[in-house]
Amino acid sequence: MVQWRIEDNMDTFMERYQEPPEIFHLSPVCMLAGLDKEGDPIMLNRLGSFDAFGMHQQVGTDAMLDADYFLFELFSTRGNGMPSHLDWQQYHYEPMTGKRFAQFTVIVDLHGLSVRQFHPALFGLLKKSSYIGQYYYPGLAKRIVVVRAPKVFRMAWGIAKHFYDEQSLRLLKFVTNDDYLEALQEFVDLEVLPPVMNGKGKQMPGYMEKVKLEGGRISEQMQTQ
Rank of each mutant, 00 (worst) to 15 (best):
D189N: 13
G199R: 09
S84D: 15
Q221G: 02
G48S: 07
G112H: 12
M208K: 03
E38I: 06
V108N: 11
L47Y: 10
V175W: 01
L125P: 11
K173Y: 08
I144Y: 01
M43L: 13
P195N: 00
Y207M: 03
L171I: 02
D51I: 05
A102N: 13
G79I: 02
L71Q: 08
L65G: 06
N198R: 06
Y164F: 15
W4V: 05
S76T: 13
G158Y: 09
H92P: 00
H111W: 06
Y69E: 00
V2W: 00
G54R: 09
T61I: 13
R100L: 03
P205E: 08
V145S: 04
V59M: 04
L86V: 07
Q89K: 14
D51N: 05
L110Q: 07
K200S: 02
Q225L: 14
R100G: 01
V147Y: 00
R170F: 01
M43C: 14
R143A: 14
I42E: 05
F123R: 15
Q225H: 06
E94I: 04
S129C: 15
G158N: 14
G39D: 12
G215F: 08
Y137E: 03
Y91D: 01
V152K: 10
Q203D: 06
S129E: 13
N177T: 15
E182L: 07
E166M: 06
D40L: 07
K173G: 10
F53R: 07
V108E: 09
T61F: 12
V146T: 10
M197C: 09
H162A: 06
G39P: 11
L26T: 08
V175F: 04
R217C: 06
S219W: 13
G34Y: 05
L140A: 11
K37Q: 08
G215A: 03
H162I: 05
Y180S: 06
E38G: 07
Q90H: 12
L47R: 12
E166A: 13
F174R: 15
Y180A: 03
D62L: 02
M155K: 07
I107Y: 02
P195W: 00
Y93M: 00
A121D: 14
L35V: 04
Q167I: 12
L190D: 09
Q203W: 12
M197R: 10
I107P: 02
Y207C: 00
L113R: 15
R100S: 08
E214T: 11
I159C: 06
A160R: 14
F187R: 07
Y69Q: 00
G206V: 09
E15D: 10
G133K: 11
E19H: 12
V175A: 01
Q167E: 14
E220I: 01
H92D: 15
Q221L: 09
E22I: 09
I23Q: 05
K142R: 13
I132G: 01
V2Y: 01
T224K: 13
I132Q: 03
K37R: 15
L122H: 02
S76V: 10
R46N: 07
V211A: 13
R148I: 01
Q58I: 05
M14V: 05
V145M: 02
G215L: 10
D189M: 08
A63F: 06
L172D: 04
Y135K: 00
A33E: 12
Q223C: 08
D11Q: 07
M31W: 04
V145H: 04
Q221M: 12
V145A: 05
L184D: 08
G124P: 09
Y91P: 01
R100F: 02
